[in-house]
């Protein structure tokens, strides 16, 4: 059979990748392009007509101070959360690969928060912050705990960070565990013979050999933190006084609550560009730092 004809290729392609092409185009490519078009219209979500407004949505975005505040807040939250998640995850990974008894049990346990959706996690922690911590503060008469952290501006941000660290540390731990395992025992032994202490071995041998794990974890945490929505919705709902509205929630409200679909889409696009630039830059810098044993 001749396998080099256009009709053969076409048949094969349609047979194996036809459905994928259609679904992928319908759900990702077309909406993405349509979204670009939407940013040039002022659509209210109901009417049939989508009046063309040129760059008015982008002008509205630049004038929307609430959006820039939300974006700034998201950056602050992301920087703190990303650092803490990775520090905690790295320490956890070190502890559960150091040959302690029952380390598989601990690994499985630390991973549990990842199994459960952000909505449920947020409500559980809301209970912890609003009731359990307050009760603890009252019984021990600790002033800092006696009012709910969620009711203050900085407290709400702190709560979001705590929950994010708790949520993602177990997942990132697994990636660091894989990193620790990939460092060959020979190199570690050589370092020991040369007189390295435990800490020196980790810092001078393991960490440089695990750069790809760091790059990966940073990429995952940066993109997740930038786009945080579920936990934001259930834990703080943007309160108090809209002081904990993150960028993704602002976009959602702009489009689906205030019915400014065009502006919402323009804001989503800018958020995406910021996130993609940071993520890709990080990977680029990280790849350069990679070394091999």
């Amino acid at each position: 059979m001749n396998t080099n004809t256009a009709s053969y290729k076409c048949k094969q392609y349609m047979m194996f990748a036809g459905v994928t092409t259609v679904v992928f185009a319908a759900v990702v490519i077309v909406p993405f392009l349509y979204g670009l078009y939407l940013t040039f219209t002022s659509w209210d979500g109901v009417s049939k007509s989508k009046p063309f407004v040129a760059l008015a949505n982008y002008a509205a975005t630049f004038a929307d101070s609430a959006y820039w505040q939300a974006l700034g807040r998201t950056v602050i939250y992301s920087v703190i959360a990303v650092i803490l998640v990775n520090v905690v995850a790295f320490i956890l990974a070190f502890l559960v690969t150091s040959g302690v008894k029952g380390q598989n049990f601990f690994r499985a346990g630390f991973f549990i928060p990842n199994l459960i959706g952000g909505i449920v996690l947020g409500y559980i922690w809301k209970f912890v912050f609003n009731r359990a911590f307050v009760a603890l503060g009252e019984s021990l008469s600790v002033g800092a705990l006696s009012t709910s952290w969620l009711s203050t501006t900085n407290g709400a941000m702190l709560c979001l960070i705590i929950v994010s660290v708790w949520q993602y540390a177990g997942y990132m731990m697994l990636i660091y565990v894989a990193g620790f395992m990939s460092v060959s025992a020979d190199v570690l032994e050589a370092a020991k013979i040369d007189g390295c202490t435990n800490l020196q071995t980790i810092w001078n041998i393991s960490v440089p050999l695990m750069v790809s794990s760091f790059v990966q974890c940073l990429f995952l945490t940066i993109t997740r933190c930038f786009m945080v929505y579920d936990v934001n919705l259930s834990l703080t709902k943007g309160e108090p006084f809209n002081s904990s509205v993150m960028a993704a929630m602002h976009v959602y409200n702009q489009a689906f609550t205030y019915k400014n679909y065009g502006t919402g889409q323009a804001e989503a696009l800018i958020l995406f560009v910021v996130c993609a630039v940071v993520g890709v830059l990080q990977v680029y810098v990280g790849k350069k730092a990679e070394v091999s044993a």
Binding site: V27, V28, P31, F32, Y34, G35, L38, T223, F226, M227, Y229, A248, V251, Y252, A255, Y261, G264, Q265, A268, L269, L271, F272, C275
Partner: peptide, 8 residues
């Protein structure tokens, strides 16, 4: 990210 595609 999904947020870019949800409105369209």
């Amino acid at each position: 990210p999904f947020q870019v595609l949800m409105i369209p």
